[in-house]
């Protein structure tokens, strides 16, 4: 039995199996008591191509629990830290909610919990993983598009998927070394090139608190 310290958790999301159903989103809302308005995970959906060859592409997004996390590097109180098994967590008792980690993360995956006034994010369901369970989103996924496990264990399903498939990560150039891998992830969905800035301005002023 491997000890905790030698584990290296990762998630592989097989986009050939994903059906964009949002079960993972709601699983996380329930498991993590994520309030309305904020999300630890969500499924981005885009359409591309002209009629009649239009296709839809999905992209479930969550914290990458990076090997080289900018959020941890920039957290001034060490409230954000990386566990030995690679899971990046926030200590709710230490976080001062300066939100600098949110500003720093290249993936928009952290949020302030409006009830608790601390920063939260996906931590690969550490409480479930520690109890020998799969993360809630993984367990609920109707098509088993999401697979979670130990990269250091060659026999684990994630290791095998990583070994036998080409995978990509989000924003490789950020050098955060994400631990969420996508099989057959759509390039456009994974970049934010197509973004329409106007879409966000509403949020901009809405979220302004002063």
């Amino acid at each position: 039995m491997a000890t905790l310290a030698t584990k290296r958790y990762a998630m592989v999301i097989d986009m050939r199996r994903c059906i964009g159903c949002h079960a993972c989103t709601v699983a996380c809302k329930a498991e993590m008591a994520v309030p309305l308005e904020v999300n630890a995970t969500w499924v981005k959906i885009i359409e591309k191509g002209p009629y009649p060859s239009t296709r839809r592409f999905y992209l479930p997004r969550l914290c990458n629990n990076c090997t080289n996390p900018i959020c941890v590097r920039n957290c001034p109180t060490q409230a954000s830290y990386k566990r030995d098994d690679g899971i990046v967590v926030v200590d709710p008792h230490r976080c001062i909610c300066c939100k600098y980690c949110i500003a720093s993360c290249p993936y928009d995956v952290r949020y302030v919990n409006p009830f608790k006034n601390i920063v939260e994010k996906c931590y690969f369901c550490q409480h479930r993983v520690d109890a020998g369970l799969e993360p809630a989103c993984v367990e609920s996924c109707p098509t088993r598009a999401m697979v979670f496990g130990d990269r250091n264990d060659d026999k684990s399903e994630v290791s095998q998927l990583l070994a036998s498939n080409a995978t990509t990560v989000l924003k490789k150039e950020m050098e955060t070394e994400p631990n969420v891998f996508y099989i057959a992830g759509d390039e456009t969905a994974m970049s934010n090139d197509e973004k329409n800035i106007n879409y966000w301005t509403e949020g901009t002023f809405f979220q302004l608190r002063l």
Partner: peptide, 24 residues
């Protein structure tokens, strides 16, 4: 506090759609 799938169920196993989990 939470609704999950029943792994013994012949149809869905542990999986559950968004609506099933939101029944709460």
């Amino acid at each position: 506090v939470k609704i999950g799938g029943n792994p013994k169920h012949i149809s869905n196993g542990s999986a559950l759609c968004a609506r099933g989990q939101a029944g709460i």
